[in-house]
Design a protein around this nucleic acid. Sequence first.
DNA 1: CAAACGTGGCG
DNA 2: TCGCCAAGTTT
Length: 346
Amino acid sequence: MDAKHRIDIATPLLDWYDRHRRDLPWRARPGEVPDPYRVWLSEVMLQQTTVATVRPRFTEWTRRWPTFADLAAADEAQVMAAWAGLGYYARARNLLAAARVIAGDHGGALPDSEAALRALPGFGDYTAAAVAAIAFGRRAVVVDANVERVVARLFAIAAPLPGGRKAIRAAAETITPDERAGDFAQAMMDLGSAVCSPRKPRCLLCPLHHACAAQATGTPEAFPVKKPKAVRPHRYGTIFWLERDGTVLLVRRPGSGLLGGMRALPTGAWTDAPPELADAPVGADWQIVDERVRHGFTHFTLELAVAIATTHDAVNTGEWWPIARLNEAGLPTLFAKAADVARRAR
DNA sequence: CAAACGTGGCG
DNA sequence: TCGCCAAGTTT
């Protein structure tokens, strides 16, 4: 696209942003200097996660670890436990790893270029661009799901995602301004959230209404076009609740993979058929309770039986955790649900 | 490039 | 009830 024929999207969008911007805990108010630590943390927490979920978790996290140095010095088990319930736990591992690189190799401050940021753990194309723009005012083409939707509609880009991302990025490049790059990125996200929403876009409220090719077609909600998703398989498993003197046996899951690095209740393999008591951590008088635990992951659904037993023996794998303080263990939601079922059934 | 990787809310 | 969707990254 010839630069002389580019439509000025930034001016009406930034005007709209100045009137309608959301006040968020990680966002610098007009005239304030952004805190790169808070910008970075919010960007990571917000990956595939809603603002409503992140808001209280961000506040708790920054009260506990207010700076890069605080986080870099944190205990890994406590960091993982603090992330419990947020999902995509590789984010927490990468967050801590990046904090330690920043503290060790970057003098305790984030690098301010997109390329240097991109090299840090957990920084992909989106996060590197977003932090460069929002925290450091660098011009960067920031493309998240909101920007994809807004741009796909503005230009009526019909190529289905994910293949269509190339065309969307090229179009986003043409509308990204040199000044106020961070505000522009956040304005696109606020617009995508409040106005250019996935199901029912509020085109009558949109500051870009007259420039929007999708709106002109009469069915703006048809953009972006997406490739159909594969069906999710259904799997079965058993969770083991082993009790001893007011404590329950917890284990630490392997450092990578599903729920990697998190505390958990012992569980066997998750398979196409109910495994019953296979893979029990110890021999015991196991009783399977009636209620099942159902849980949906991104790529499969899971149905768990809960087996309960009491022991007085020593067990050398895992840690005995006080049942009265189980809410402090940092269990992922799946295991918290299973623990509720087990406690009700005792 | 496709698949793995969590969870909660909404229509 | 259920599929879609959310400020993506890694392998």
